[in-house]
Computed example of a mutant assay.
Amino acid sequence: MFTGIIEAIGTVTALDNEKGNLHISIESSITPELKIDQSVSHNGVCLTVVAINDNTYTVTAINETLEKTNLKHLKIGDKVNLERAMKLGDRLDGHIVQGHVDQTAKCTNIASANGSWIFTFNYDAKLNNITIEKGSITINGVSLTVVNSKADTFSVAIIPYTFEHTNFNSFKVDAVVNLEFDVLGKYVSKLVSLNKN
């Protein structure tokens, strides 16, 4: 379980394909505090640490994860948002995030707004995920508030701190991002669809 509050940005140092799996090596400031078998969110994807070597650690993404997320687009040198699992009793500064990406979206617009930025994203509504105005959304592991919610598009406002301390500062139009929709909203949506049948 995560909160969507990014702890560090990691840098991809190696990518190794093996039988449909992708071994991803990442250098980060939190590596010395990690342990083998620990869960870490990478752009919102919960992956298990399988090896540690100095300031670099390795995780493995299986084919299903690669198909559902933007991890398949990673290149050496790319920046990745990182968050370790929350501790029981900690403050929940973001929202409840499972680290299970629902689908990807494409950035369609980036607009400057008096010291902050408005990022707009388009996603495939046929997968039955929804946003609501002022609801929670996780983009590349970052807990954010939805504005301009529509059937297949929404926007988020990014303050300078978030821009500087996440990989939002590397986004361009057409960037592919990971989305995890609010878990409470997903249960409500499922219940409503069951009641219709």
Rank of each mutant, 00 (worst) to 15 (best):
I110C: 06
K172D: 06
G77E: 08
L127H: 15
D102T: 03
E64F: 14
G44M: 01
W117E: 02
N63G: 00
S143M: 01
A85P: 12
C107H: 07
L88A: 05
D93V: 05
I110F: 09
K126S: 15
K19D: 14
Q98S: 13
D37R: 14
A157I: 14
E67C: 08
A125T: 04
D90I: 11
K72L: 01
N122L: 09
K72F: 03
F119H: 11
V50A: 07
N140I: 10
T104H: 11
G4T: 09
T58A: 02
I139D: 00
K68R: 07
V40L: 08
N128I: 02
Y57F: 15
N148L: 05
C46H: 01
T65H: 14
T138W: 06
T3E: 07
I139R: 03
V49Y: 14
D16W: 02
N55E: 11
I110S: 03
A85D: 11
M1A: 09
T65Q: 05
V101F: 15
V192K: 00
G141V: 09
S25E: 12
T120L: 02
N63R: 02
T138Q: 01
W117R: 11
S29N: 13
I9H: 00
I139C: 03
P32T: 07
A61P: 12
L71F: 10
A105P: 10
K190E: 14
D37G: 06
I139N: 01
S189F: 10
S189G: 08
D174K: 10
L74P: 04
E164A: 08
I52L: 08
N63L: 04
I118W: 01
T60N: 05
E18P: 06
I24T: 00
N21H: 12
F154Y: 15
E18C: 12
L191S: 00
K186Q: 13
T13E: 13
V12H: 09
N55P: 08
G10I: 02
S29H: 09
I110R: 00
L47T: 05
T162Y: 04
L194Y: 11
G115K: 05
V176W: 11
K126W: 10
Y57W: 12
